[in-house]
Design a protein around this nucleic acid. Structure first.
Length: 639
RNA sequence: GCCACCUUAGCUCAGAUGGUAGAGCAGGCGUUUCGUAAACGUCAGGUCAUGGGUUCGACUCCCAUAGGUGGCUCCA
């Protein structure tokens, strides 16, 4: 038996014991997810996960391990300048300014020294000092001096409000190392299990996250209570790596990014393209059935357009340089909104025409710094499943209800059942009338309440042009991904002077709502790949059934079955090469094809196929028609 | 963009201290016709990311460029 961590959001909550062989078959999709569901129910009743963590012993262990690491580093590099070293989710880090770049060998020796320090049983001692004393102690530590000055001056809290009470200045010492630290720590180093810590990587990090300030070297590490928990954490990291959409995208031949085309630009291969097409078809049908009109707009627009929309004022850093066309400047579009606005403006609108819902899968281009590009998740060109709603003030609550429910419906259709909403309200700097903001925020919140979806409010977190709801989904291993966004826009209707004629014969300003449900097709595809680990449900699978004849004499019959399946609307492939059956199964399995249909003498005689599923289940021979019914059921139920 | 690391055949990777490259898989061609995750043989594949430099000689060392990976938010 071997322990398997029960976790949520990478926070280990405990362990259960399973047979080693089950660990790999059950854990990733089956068992773990089941556990997750029950944990989520339990844990959602708990007050605040973050507070819980910070009060935990594990948090103290990690924070203290970070200090021990700092001690080891300072011993190795006496001239090191130390910055900060907190515990974080799953581990800790510490930032240093060092005379030279660290190597993997350095990490090994630091880690070894850390074990030595831990085993020497050092105490962690807390001491409160005055700012003056602190300055003396850290006279050659510029980062600490800056922190002391900050503490003394009374800094800002998370919301940017000045902290009124000056915190006391405390030190923690262990062994030869003293750090300016709020704590808490373990009392003695033996609380840390030297076999349950590991240094992971070194990365650059700006002092205080500010790119204008010095670049420090950050060492990341992890620490757990037991070696088994450490092992399990490392195993989880491996599992997450296996789900990496870049790896799966390559293995399953879904997409690529090549240097010759350009960084952050996606090539969709036929199989990825098939999945995209299925997503788009579904998307279109649902939009069609829900009162949307489809619009298509160009990829570039004149400078004046972006001037009016405000993009050249507020968004220019993310836009590419203009192209010159007959002396006029044109910009590649970073958003679709201005075009949709002009479709609205193209005729005089009556109050009877509203609401209008313009939808477009609009491809936009945004400049992203090279270092932040990441597979399908962060790219420079992508297609938004965009739409803009224009409605009257009296229609606004119903319109929000509609779009929120529509969003939830679409996300759930793709197998995302755990959805968390975030409502962001008026920031200090904003456009629009306060009463507009209030009405919109109230409509958003009331609507959230009616749907019953779990939500949090981020006061002051909205964009300057309007409040919004973001929807995040949890994937199969508990990670959150932001997909949908529903945003009010008080800015563009003003800037473009949008109106409709009311019952009173007078022009009125419409409300405008901008929304994307899947976000971008590229990113959404990446999330789907990781959520399903490449094993897409049948309705999304580029190939649904693989026909596997055992010997060449079965190929003709298999071809005949393939035709029947295609006529029934299934996507099939036939293994007609003279490989061994085992090799064909292995290949189909690696391609994560949902249904494998083995065909030998017995099947040929009885007009059957022997069904094998990619999870290893082997239901055996069934008539072709029975298989067709079963597959069609799975597909229509999207399971 | 910045910091560190990385870039060898389509893919995954070997190639001490500088002496112009090797395996497995994939691919082509044969042979095999086989009941639930890899049959056997054979052939072909590389200006070692690109461009400079050091050297008698560079995949190996230095510099630049392009791509990639991990970070750059979570308060001492």
């Amino acid at each position: 038996m071997t322990p398997l961590s029960v976790f949520r959001d990478d926070l280990v909550l405990g362990s259960i014991w399973v047979e080693p062989r089950d660990r790999h078959t059950l854990a990733p999709e089956g068992l773990r997810v089941l556990i997750l569901i029950s944990i989520i129910i339990l844990e959602d009743n708990m007050a605040d996960k973050k507070e819980l963590y910070e009060a935990s012993e594990l948090y103290r262990i990690r924070h203290s391990t970070s200090h021990i690491m700092a001690q080891a580093v300072v011993e190795k590099f006496p001239e090191a300048k130390v910055a900060i070293g907190p515990a974080i989710e799953d581990g800790f880090y510490y930032d240093f300014d060092l005379p030279r770049p660290l190597t993997p060998e350095d990490l090994e020796s630091i880690e070894k020294r850390m074990r030595g320090i831990i085993q020497s049983k050092v105490d962690f001692q807390r001491k409160v000092v005055s700012a003056e004393e602190a300055r003396m102690i850290f006279h050659d530590q510029p980062f600490k001096l800056e922190l002391i000055a900050g503490l003394e001056g009374g800094e800002m809290d998370d919301d940017g409000n000045p902290v009124t009470e000056k915190p006391e200045i405390s030190l923690y010492s262990q062994g030869t190392f003293t750090d300016l630290c709020r704590g808490p720590h373990v009392d003695i180093s033996t609380r840390i299990n030297p076999a349950a810590i590991k240094l992971l990587s070194v990365a650059g990090a700006y002092w205080r996250g500010d790119e204008k300030r010095p670049m420090l070297q950050r060492i990341y590490g992890t620490a757990w209570k037991t070696p088994d928990e450490l092992k399990d954490y490392l195993w989880r990291m491996e599992e997450a790596k296996k789900r990496d959409h870049r790896k799966i995208g390559h293995d399953l031949d879904l997409f690529s990014v090549v240097e010759e085309v350009g960084a952050g630009l996606i090539l969709w291969h036929p199989k990825g393209g098939k999945i995209r097409k299925i997503i788009e078809n579904f998307w279109s049908e649902e939009h069609e059935a829900n009162g949307y009109d489809f619009v298509y707009t160009p990829h570039i627009g004149k400078a004046q357009l972006w001037e009016t929309s405000g993009h050249l004022g507020f968004y220019k850093e993310n836009m590419y340089s203009p192209v010159d066309i007959e002396g006029q400047q044109y910009f590649l579009k970073p958003m679709n909104c201005p075009f949709h606005v002009y479709i609205y403006k193209n005729s005089l609108r009556s109050y009877r025409d509203l609401p209008l819902r313009y939808a477009e899968e609009g491809t936009v281009y945004r400049y992203e710094r090279s270092g932040v590009l990441h597979g399908l998740m962060r790219v420079r060109g992508f297609t938004q499943d965009d739409a803009h709603h224009f409605c009257r003030p009296d229609q606004m609550p119903a319109e929000i209800d509609f779009v929120l429910n529509f969003s939830l419906h679409i996300l759930r259709s793709f197998g995302f059942s755990a959805i968390q909403a975030y409502l962001s309200t008026k920031p200090e700097k904003s456009v629009g009338l306060p009463e507009q903001w209030l009405a919109a925020e109230e409509a958003l919140e009331e609507s959230l309440k009616r749907t019953g979806v779990d939500y949090e409010v981020d006061r002051g977190g909205g964009a300057f042009y309007g409040p919004k709801i973001d929807l995040k989904v949890k994937d199969a291993i508990g990670r959150e991904w932001q997909l949908s966004t529903i945003q009010f826009d008080f800015n563009l209707p003003e800037r473009f002077d949008l109106t409709y004629i009311g019952e009173d014969g007078q022009p009125h300003r419409p409300y405008m709502v901008h929304r994307a449900l899947l976000g971008s097709l590229e990113r959404f595809f990446g999330v789907l790949i990781e959520h399903y680990a490449g094993a897409f449900p049948a309705w999304l699978s580029p190939i649904q059934a693989a026909l596997i004849p055992i010997a060449d004499r079965h190929v003709d019959y298999a071809r005949n079955v393939a035709d029947q399946l295609r006529k029934a609307g299934l996507r099939v492939m036939l293994y007609d090469r003279s490989e061994r059956m085992n090799a064909k199964i292995r290949d189909a399995q690696n391609q994560k094809i949902p249904y494998m249909l083995i065909i030998g003498d017995k099947e040929m005689e009885n007009d059957q196929v022997a069904l094998r599923l990619r999870n290893g289940e082997n239901p055996g021979p069934i008539p072709v028609s029975v298989f067709i019914d079963r597959a069609k059921d799975d597909i229509s139920s999207k399971s």
